[in-house]
Design a protein around this nucleic acid. Structure first.
Lengths: 206, 206
DNA sequence: CTAAAACTAAGTATAAACACGTAGATAAAA
DNA sequence: TTTTATCTACGTGTTTATACTTAGTTTTAG
């Protein structure tokens, strides 16, 4: 029996997932959390085999939880779920050791296939995801937005000024400027507004 | 038996919805569509009592479909679903004659209550929604964004700088600044980012 | 252990955005 | 025909952002 821990902030989505997973007799949902904090508590107290986790969540997002999980001794399997096929997310998830990454709108069977593959020790990335990755890699290690830069990007997308961002993450305004400049250069975008648009389009906001 | 037509672009969400609705014996999902176009076809060919429709969808969004539905002779009941509690959406839905508007993260029972209320001829707007509306109406008839301002707003949403916008519409940068200032004042938004979100949410972009 | 990458931050000068007030020209409505 | 709304735009002063360079410190990977 594969014991699954669900982490997603939308109750309806969780229900949809549960329903899908219930179609397979060897899978069982043993816990649910609606944000990262809850997830971490459950991870400590619960026995399970795999975490199925959304990236975009309020309170504490999935990417961060992934990081924390993978820093622990026990190697829990983590399958990331996302609405977005943006490369920053995908690369971020891979960098932090996710065992798989699938988009939320994949057909139902694929989800179960993915879980079983991950449980068997392999990794699973849905075809849309691998396609994006290959395009990225084809362009040779082009600038990857680093974690710190992603953070700054998210704050930019929330409409904060350099000054506010600097206060928020306790660095100098000049540092924020530097990060911003590097992000622009990496993404080939030349205006702050363009960055905002990018962040919104690719779901890096909120 | 209440026959429901589901319209949402996310299969998982539809499954979650179906699961919830299946908890009530008097409700039955008779059709599903994943975008506005499909929905319109089903509406022509199918018999049903109420449409449960998401606003944000690719291809053809829910707001436009609502408009088309309400222009027809038969008065179909329409309950709008949305991730966003943004007032333009809510007001837009009301203006186009939606019978209800609820947020996607409401508890499961509320959805069923809402459907039954709408079927009985009443309207249903969830509490978060009515709260936002009351705030809006308290401020009475605030300024309407003019055509020119809408144009500027659209360009802002595309991430253009004041300078670029000025070039685009052949006016001085100062004029753009003035428009921007007026828009902000009218909408009660004080950041350019807020304007962008407004434009994107309201579909003024692209 | 060493090299590379990431994070930090400053100097200096220029450019852009914003706030607030004001106002002429023109088009639309009463 | 007045009145009103809209579109246009300037002045002035302040704040913020950017361009381009350089560089110390820390972390990560080979």
């Amino acid at each position: 029996m594969i014991r699954v821990l669900l982490v997603d902030d939308h109750p309806l989505f969780r229900e949809g997932l549960k329903h899908r997973l219930s179609l397979d007799d060897s899978i069982e949902v043993v816990g649910e959390a609606e944000n990262g904090k809850q997830a971490l508590e459950l991870i400590k107290s619960l026995e399970f085999d795999i975490v199925l986790m959304d990236i975009n969540m309020p309170e504490m997002d999935g990417m961060y939880v992934l990081e924390l999980i993978k820093e622990q001794d026990i190697d829990y399997k983590v399958l990331m779920l996302s609405m977005h096929d943006n490369k920053e997310y995908i690369l971020g998830a891979m960098r932090h050791g996710a065992n798989g990454y699938i988009l939320k709108d994949v057909p139902g069977k694929e989800l179960i296939v993915a879980i079983k593959k991950v449980i068997s020790g392999k990794s699973y990335f849905s075809s849309e995801v691998t396609e994006i990755l290959s395009k990225e890699l084809a362009g040779e290690q082009r600038g990857i937005v680093t974690r710190r830069e992603q953070l700054v990007l998210r704050l930019i997308s929330q409409g904060l000024s350099n000054k506010r961002i600097a206060q928020e993450i306790n660095v100098s305004v000049r540092t924020v400027e530097t990060h911003k400049r590097n992000i622009k250069q990496k993404l080939g975008i030349d205006s702050t507004m363009g960055l905002m648009r990018y962040a919104i389009d690719y779901g890096l906001d909120r």
